[in-house]
Design a protein around this nucleic acid. Structure first.
Lengths: 251, 251
DNA sequence: TTCAATTGTTTTGTGTACAAAAACTGGCTA
DNA sequence: TAGCCAGTTTTTGTACACAAAACAATTGAA
């Protein structure tokens, strides 16, 4: 009854022919990355090497490499002899992530304002436009994705590759935080306030932009990790649910 | 005549017995990391898997994992079918790294001042003391190491693990920058000015500490990456060499 | 003599095999 | 019925083998 399923289609990708070389690894990485960041895989989900290897039609060797990379990015958790799972950020981690975002995103704004050109601003406005569209059509996933994309794209204007990459990592981890602690409506910055900061940047108001960003990120954090004293409550609830599930399912 | 040398002693490490599990990988990682960051391996040095595997007495599989990790940290460069080399940061990268350090290290200072306790300050003072000792005895390597250690230890006071780890990465990359562009005397912050910032922190002067750090990091950058207009000259030379090489090799 | 091409060697990429560890199952006992 | 232990199965860790790519060296021709 267990028929063998064929491999996942990795999409054509503008790579050379049979997707030789490490283009395959990259494609697998992107797939898993997207699956995790877009919350198709719940935090805590086990990621067995064999399953993934068969799913993508490669050997475990390639899968291991991809998992190692995701582990380094803190999107998956690898424990010795226990394999990989989708990471579950702790509350402390969540706080650290948002604190880091405040420092980095506010910190780069001076350079962002300095290097903002009309063309760059238009690209950013385009993201905001698509955000509005996604929101209007109720596409929450796309909305969250574009919201993160905006923050990264903004940082990219500073032309500091190192910092931009680091921020991209923080943003992707933020969606894991949303997945584990977030309220159902969280994640998309409400009403896509992103227009406002673009105006401030266009006017060259670095100070104003910094203040706006500080407030904006605090808003998001408040919406997402709504725990103040409650983390214990939420954790307890989660544990109880888990126990109930096991109790139901395992005998 | 090529006698087989025995494996590198990885030190006992407080791991369990035969160093089974992934304790070995960690030990190998630490060794390579230290070798690179302490400039025992010049930037650009090739790191063949076979050689390393034999040197550490493990198979290539383990070595590959370690190299992948170092590549992710930008300490080594892996090119397809071409293997790993010790990374050679570009001038652009060097600038980005120091810009990132300014933002991160100045950014965390508010929290550092807020969370500084006498005990923490004493630990930092101890590092500075050892810095002075190393400097007095002319131990340049130790001096550079402790200088970096100070910056990381300072950030650690903020208790933001994510940011501290990122900064640790930036600091280790800084020593690669020093190795490739630095003047012979560069790297150790001259006269170990680190005492000064500890005083400001002890007094709770966050603003002063931030200004000090801004100046301090700009000083280091100026000392290290001494190129102002010269990068174009250097780049031109590089480009010409590259063109010449292609011209020779490709037809 | 210099450049180019071909052959041989080294080095990397990737799949597979086997050993060790963890997870699971079933049966046993209190 | 709940808890626990032993044997089995699954899953991970590591070494190894083979194919493919890059590199080096040698030879031939202009």
């Amino acid at each position: 009854m267990s028929r063998k399923r064929s491999s996942i289609d990795l999409g054509s990708m503008q790579t050379e022919e049979g997707m030789s070389g490490s283009g395959r690894d990259e494609a697998i990485y992107r797939n898993l990355y997207a699956a995790i960041v877009e919350n198709h895989l719940e935090p805590g989900t086990k990621l067995p090497e064999d399953t993934l290897a068969e799913a993508f039609g490669v050997s475990r060797t390639s899968i291991r490499k991809v998992l190692q990379r995701l582990a380094y990015e803190r999107l998956v958790d690898i424990r010795l002899n226990r394999g990989a799972t989708v990471a579950q950020p702790t509350v402390k981690e969540a706080r650290d992530i948002f604190a880091a975002r405040r420092i980095v995103e506010c910190g780069v704004l001076a350079q962002v304002v300095a290097k903002a050109t009309p063309a760059r601003l238009d690209e950013l406005r385009d993201i905001v436009r698509r955000e509005h569209e996604a929101e209007a059509r109720g596409d929450r996933r796309e909305s969250i994705y574009l919201s993160g994309e905006f923050h990264v794209a903004l940082a990219r204007v500073s032309e500091n590759e190192t910092l931009t990459e680091y921020l991209a990592g923080l943003v992707s981890r933020s969606s894991l935080v949303i997945a584990t602690y977030g309220a159902p409506m969280a994640g998309s910055c409400r009403h896509s306030e992103h227009d406002d900061v673009l105006e401030l940047i266009a006017e060259g108001d670095a100070e104003g932009a910094r203040n706006w960003m500080e407030r904006h990120l605090k808003d998001i954090e408040r919406t997402v990790v709504l725990v103040e004293e409650e983390p214990s409550v939420l954790d307890l609830r989660k544990v109880l649910d888990e126990v109930a599930r096991r109790h139901r399912g395992e005998r």
